[in-house]
């Protein structure tokens, strides 16, 4: 986690730098992110058979 991390990428609630919601963190093992962790916007997420991509209009694309 970096110091710019402000929002939980699963539930969209505040997640100040260095913290994570335990339930969300474990759920994320079987889910892609849904919220941009920098601005809380809902991202456009495409799940593929292998991997996923998530796009924030402001902060661009991440892949996993």
């Amino acid at each position: 986690m970096t110091t710019t991390e402000l929002w939980c990428d699963r539930c969209g609630d505040p997640a100040p730098a260095g913290t994570a919601h335990p339930g969300c963190a474990s759920a994320r093992e079987l889910e892609p992110p849904r919220y941009c962790h920098r601005c809380r916007r809902r991202m456009k997420v495409q799940v593929l058979p292998v991997g996923w991509s998530a796009v924030c209009v402001e902060h661009g694309e991440i892949r996993g």
């Binding site: 889910e31 892609p32 799940v47 058979p49 991997g51």
Partner: peptide, 11 residues
């Protein structure tokens, strides 16, 4: 592999 909106275990 993955599902439609959630992830599966690796193939």
């Amino acid at each position: 592999g993955n599902y439609l909106t959630t992830l599966g275990r690796p193939a």
